[in-house]
Amino acid sequence: MAFSADELRVLRRALATALNPAPLQDEDVQDCLRLAEAVDDAVREAGRLRAFLLADLARYREALPGTLPGYLELLQDALAAGYDPAADDLAALRALRANPRAAALLERCQVLAERSVRARLVRATRAVAPAPRTRLLALPGGRSAADEPKPATPKPPVPSKPPAPKPSEVFPPRRRPVPPPPPEERVAG
C-alpha cells in the first residue's frame, strides 16, 4: 500500500496527535476520517483481489496439465501475496514434478506448507495449555475483625434432593410372573 504526499502529512499529524494529545481542528479531523476511509477501501480491494486470484488459481489447477505455465505463474503470484499452498496445490505439483519449474515450486510449497502446519500447531497448543498459576500473596492492611460484616441469622437447611435418581426409581423392580394354576384346578365345573 502506498500513500500520497498529502496522505503522509495527514498520517504524520495523526501520529503526532496520538503521541501528544491536543485538541484537533475540524479540518484535521476530516482529513483523518478521509484517510481512514481510503485505507479501509484499499483493504477491501486487496481482499477482493486475493479472492479473485485464488479462484483463478483453482480454475487453472483444475485444467492442468494444459494450463501448466499459467498455473505456475499464478501460484508464484499467490505465494508472493502470502498464500499458504493447499493440499490440492501440493498434489498438482507432485504430478507435474517432471517439469523443472514445477519441481522447484513444489520444494518451495512444501517448506511453506510445513511452516504453516507448525504455526497452527503452536497456536493450538497455546490455546489448550493452561495458564501458569500465580501465587496469591497477602497484602498488608487487610480487613480487621471490626471491618468484617456481621453474620446473618442462619436459615434452617433445606433438604435437597440428590442430583441423580436411584436405580430403583428409574428401573422399578420386576415382578415375577405368577405361575399358572395346576391343570386340575383349570377344569371348569
Rank of each mutant, 00 (worst) to 15 (best):
A55S: 14
A55E: 15
D56V: 03
D56A: 10
L57V: 04
L57S: 06
A58D: 13
R59Q: 08
R59T: 06
Y60S: 12
Y60W: 11
Y60T: 11
Y60E: 14
R61C: 10
R61N: 12
E62V: 04
E62A: 13
E62M: 07
E62K: 09
A63V: 05
A63T: 06
A63E: 12
L64G: 03
L64T: 02
P65Q: 02
P65N: 04
P65H: 05
G66C: 03
G66I: 04
T67Y: 01
L68D: 02
L68N: 03
P69T: 05
G70W: 10
Y71I: 02
E73G: 03
E73A: 00
L75Q: 09
A78W: 06
A78F: 08
A81I: 07
A81Y: 09
G82F: 03
Y83Q: 04
D84L: 09
D84N: 11
A86E: 07
A87Q: 09
A87C: 03
D88T: 01
D88N: 03
D88G: 08
D88L: 04
D88E: 09
D88R: 04
D89L: 06
D89V: 08
D89C: 08
L90H: 01
A91M: 01
A92T: 04
L93W: 00
L96H: 06
R97S: 15
A98T: 13
A98M: 13
A98H: 14
A98D: 15
N99G: 07
P100G: 10
R101G: 10
R101E: 14
R101Q: 14
R101F: 10
A102K: 05
A103V: 05
L105P: 02
L105C: 04
L106N: 00
L106V: 02
E107H: 05
E107F: 02
E107A: 06
R108E: 12
R108N: 07
C109F: 00
V111H: 10
A113T: 06
E114F: 12
E114S: 14
R115W: 07
S116C: 08
S116E: 06
S116N: 09
V117E: 13
R118G: 07
A119N: 05
A119F: 01
R120A: 10
V122N: 01
V122F: 00
R123S: 06
A124L: 12
A124E: 11
T125H: 13
A127M: 00
V128D: 07
P130F: 09
P130I: 08
P132D: 04
P132T: 03
R133H: 13
L136N: 07
L136T: 09
L137A: 14
A138K: 08
P140K: 09
P140D: 11
P140R: 12
G141R: 06
G141I: 06
G142C: 11
G142I: 12
G142V: 11
G142P: 11
R143I: 12
S144Q: 08
S144G: 11
A145Y: 01
A146V: 04
D147L: 03
D147Y: 02
E148M: 10
P149L: 03
P149R: 04
P149I: 01
K150S: 14
T153C: 13
T153H: 15
P154C: 14
K155I: 13
P157M: 13
P157H: 14
P157T: 12
